[in-house]
């Protein structure tokens, strides 16, 4: 057993690379899906029925499809649309599509529950349209939604493991490679599990800090 861990330790550089890919995919995916999710939330809240209904259909569709299947659809589907991405980018596109739907749903839920009076005051003071959304509505929505967005971030981190199946060199893929090269399955995968645990705990600590911040602003 000690020998197994020694082999994994000797390959820690590879594992670190995998970890960086996982973290990079998750962070980029998070940023992009929060941006796009905010826009989609605006469409979900649109007064026009056709707009809000088609946004809702988009969200519902992605909430029913498993992430791996979506990753495959992107991986095999984009080339047939003439878009040739490498595996890493295909994976990122899948993450962004998938989580944009989730983020929009989270943000919409919070937005709906937002007290009306702050928005009314902003209207009376001359805020309207995008300025009202960006300066008054969105900051409050983000503060309240932060814990849920943090949970979604953890979900993204875990979903990146699916991308090992389309050969994205993330943490699980690297661990898999080490195990098949040296046959050290227990040590290799356990190392991966512990690294996932570490970054998920980091995100949780971040969420906790934001929650404290949010509590005094409520």
């Amino acid at each position: 057993m000690i020998r197994e861990f020694a082999i994994v330790w000797a390959n820690s550089g590879q594992l670190l690379n995998g970890l960086l890919n996982t973290a990079g995919l998750a962070v980029l995916g998070m940023i992009l899906s929060v941006l796009l999710g905010s826009l989609l939330a605006v469409l979900l809240m649109a007064r026009s029925r056709p707009v809000s209904l088609s946004a809702q259909a988009f969200v519902d569709l992605f909430r029913c499809v498993p992430f791996l299947l979506l990753a495959y659809l992107v991986y095999f589907g984009l080339p047939s649309l003439g878009l040739n991405f490498d595996n890493w980018t295909s994976g990122l596109v899948a993450i962004v599509f998938y989580n944009t739907a989730y983020m929009a749903e989270i943000l919409r839920g919070v937005w709906r529950g937002l007290p009306r009076d702050g928005i009314e005051a902003a209207t009376a003071f001359g805020f309207q349209g995008w300025r009202l959304f960006l300066r008054i509505i969105l900051p409050q929505v983000f503060l309240i939604a932060a814990p849920m967005m943090g949970n979604q971030m953890i979900q993204i981190i875990k979903d990146t493991a699916f991308l090992s199946i389309i050969a994205v060199p993330e943490l699980t893929h690297v661990a898999s490679g080490i195990q098949s090269q040296y046959y050290v399955p227990f040590a290799a995968f356990l190392a991966a599990v512990l690294l996932y645990w570490m970054i998920c705990s980091l995100v949780e600590a971040g969420v906790f800090a934001v929650e404290r911040l949010a509590r005094e602003r409520r």
């Binding site: 009076d117 001359g126 309207q128 409050q140």
Partner: peptide
């Protein structure tokens, strides 16, 4: 329109029963 209304509203100050401060 919305912009013109907003500009006109900004000439009036309003104080609300429930304060309606921006909590963030």
């Amino acid at each position: 329109n919305g912009m013109e209304l907003a500009r006109a509203r900004s000439r009036i100050g309003m104080v609300f029963q429930h304060f309606n401060l921006w909590p963030h």
